[in-house]
Design a protein around this nucleic acid. Sequence first.
DNA 1: CCTAGCATGTGAATTTTATAACTTAAACCG
DNA 2: CGGTTTAAGTTATAAAATTCACATGCTAGG
Lengths: 213, 213
Amino acid sequence: MKTLRVPEATVTRLSIYSRYLERLDRNGVTTVSSGEIAEGVGVSPAQVRKDLAYFGEFGTRGVGYNVKDLMRYTKKILGLDHNWPLILVGAGNLGYALCTYKGFNSRGFKIVGVFDNDLTKIGKKIAELEVLPMEKMPEVIQEHKARIGIIAVPPRAAQEVADIMVKNGLEAILNFAPVALNLPEGIEIRNVDLSVKLEILTFNLGFKSAQRL
Amino acid sequence: MKTLRVPEATVTRLSIYSRYLERLDRNGVTTVSSGEIAEGVGVSPAQVRKDLAYFGEFGTRGVGYNVKDLMRYTKKILGLDHNWPLILVGAGNLGYALCTYKGFNSRGFKIVGVFDNDLTKIGKKIAELEVLPMEKMPEVIQEHKARIGIIAVPPRAAQEVADIMVKNGLEAILNFAPVALNLPEGIEIRNVDLSVKLEILTFNLGFKSAQRL
DNA sequence: CCTAGCATGTGAATTTTATAACTTAAACCG
DNA sequence: CGGTTTAAGTTATAAAATTCACATGCTAGG
């Protein structure tokens, strides 16, 4: 098997292209060039073509790409040709926001279980969903065949939650807690760090100020 | 002036090292080696040293780094030696979560103004802060000398909000809306995309399944 | 049916980033 | 006080990602 490894940056951009294509499609655009995609998402045209080339040939020379088709292809590649049930742990403000976040639904993600160990939160409803105690996680995972978990708890609790998720059979974790998690081989983990990007901004602002001197 | 450009990946990691050092410091650790930092945040020791080397010499050969000192240095480099007032637009669930997010405060970020154009939200309180109409933004920015704005509105409104922010003098924007913003030269912009990382996970899960066949 | 124009796809060149190997300096111990 | 150990700092090497440039192939128009 020809296993050409795909750079993660390429997958990231593919996700962005994919959503941009959805927008074009909604707006009734039928054909698009690599240059237009590039313009629309802020990369170079060569980058767009190179990224797509990892997965096949999707365009027509001299013409461009069929929007609907390329949209479907990109979603297929990303695994978004079917829905993904998600397990969420942490019913705080962030958890609440994630539950109601439309950007997930529109891409086929659906949170099917919200868990917390805080007795004051258990039993409350978040968007149709009742907050459940951690012990209920196994059955919810089984019922929905969930494979992905989201961690939206304070840093000190994150590792324990991750361990529970792994023990219950989840294969991938999206972690919003700003700590590095220790997980067994084979578990996919990605962190979303809300303040790192802010600190890149402050770094750059400081650098800009320094250059003015 | 010797302008060695610092890779953004290095700044990203620096932010992560910095927070890890804060944790070590809280735990009473006084000295740490590049290897221990590497272990703690999930990179290689050489990477840690290389990253720090962009900014100077902070350690003692044969010993390691003084935790408190290195923590202060990294925060200084990132511009976190003083507080940053933030302007937030979007008082939905995500905006609410960001307002109450402790990870910001602990790094010197403070949201000083929350804005929305939804009349049902204006006037409500979010964590001590009253949601204000967009028109009030200029005076709040002036009062707090804010330089950074956060966009937490639906995609279709994001560009307009960004334009207003720029017009009102903000120099950097953290954008949570999943669209590419068009901004004038010199404005720092970073996007936090909540679903891209999820799609990397689904991509990888799909790839894993394919390999099992 | 042939030619001109255009945008894809791709291999090579360049740039960037990360890893590894080595050198230097500090501290500790006998 | 010298030798040994340790870990930072640095240089060199390797790998990876991006850009460039061009050949390929499709479309349309005369």
